[in-house]
């Protein structure tokens, strides 16, 4: 197993074209999709995430880097699907009703997916019924809710109340600009993360505890 330095750096620099070239070259050279993803790409996006958490990187770099990574993941995804890569667990994610913001949600979805979990993306403006259907019918272990507006955040409580009220066992994690740990405690959600990096940590922590 080895890190491809050019690929790692291209994600840090947000260069989509070089990421695609490097991924294609690695695939052509016979490297497994998992090795490309986990040795070079995931460490790069985590590095940006760590810098972001420390206040040494900002939103523009985070989003540009994530998009570059996504360009590489798009090449690897069909290969991994074909190979029937084992999923570490099942996660659903969506932006709550009334809210159309999806950049942050997409970033979290990509990071969780890249880390080896199966991710069902319910999209934006998702009503409680759709979350409920997904949890009931798809055997989801973790549900992640996103809201970017002060005005749509209260809908997270609606979702938590409804799902917990039905006795559904899945863990609910929440995030988004106006969300805080205090709000998470207040509405009885199972976890909160201020950024995509820590969101992945929460998911991993949950599945480690569960296994």
């Amino acid at each position: 197993m080895a890190q491809i330095e050019e690929l790692y750096n291209a994600i840090l620099k947000g260069n989509r074209k070089i990421v695609q070239e490097q991924v294609q070259a690695a695939v052509a050279g016979g490297m497994s999709p998992q090795e490309i993803l986990f040795e070079s790409m995931v460490p790069a996006i985590r590095e940006i995430g760590d810098r972001f958490s420390r206040g040494q990187a900002f939103v523009p770099e985070m989003l540009i880097g994530a998009r570059a990574m996504q360009a590489g993941v798009q090449i690897l995804q069909p290969l991994m699907d074909k190979a029937g890569m084992k999923s570490l667990g099942k996660v659903a994610i969506g932006t709550v009703k009334g809210d159309l913001h999806d950049i942050g949600k997409n970033l979290v979805a990509m990071m969780v997916k890249s880390a080896g979990y199966e991710v069902i993306d319910l999209g934006v403006d998702v009503p409680v019924e759709k979350f409920e259907d997904c949890v009931k019918n798809s055997n989801v272990d973790v549900l992640m809710l996103s809201a970017l507006l002060t005005t749509t955040m209260p809908y997270m409580k609606t979702v938590v109340d409804h799902l917990k009220g039905q006795g559904l066992k899945c863990r609910i994690l929440i995030g988004g600009a106006p969300v805080t740990q205090a709000y998470c405690n207040q509405i009885g959600a199972d976890g909160y993360s201020p950024d995509a990096n820590q969101a992945l940590g929460l998911v991993e922590g949950f599945f480690q505890k569960a296994s």
Binding site: I64, L100, N106
Partner: peptide, 18 residues
């Protein structure tokens, strides 16, 4: 035009971040 329902918006937004 509701930007958030335009497929191209996110990509153009990220283009604009540099």
């Amino acid at each position: 035009v509701e930007l958030k329902t335009q497929d191209s918006f996110n990509d153009l937004y990220i283009d604009g971040l540099s």
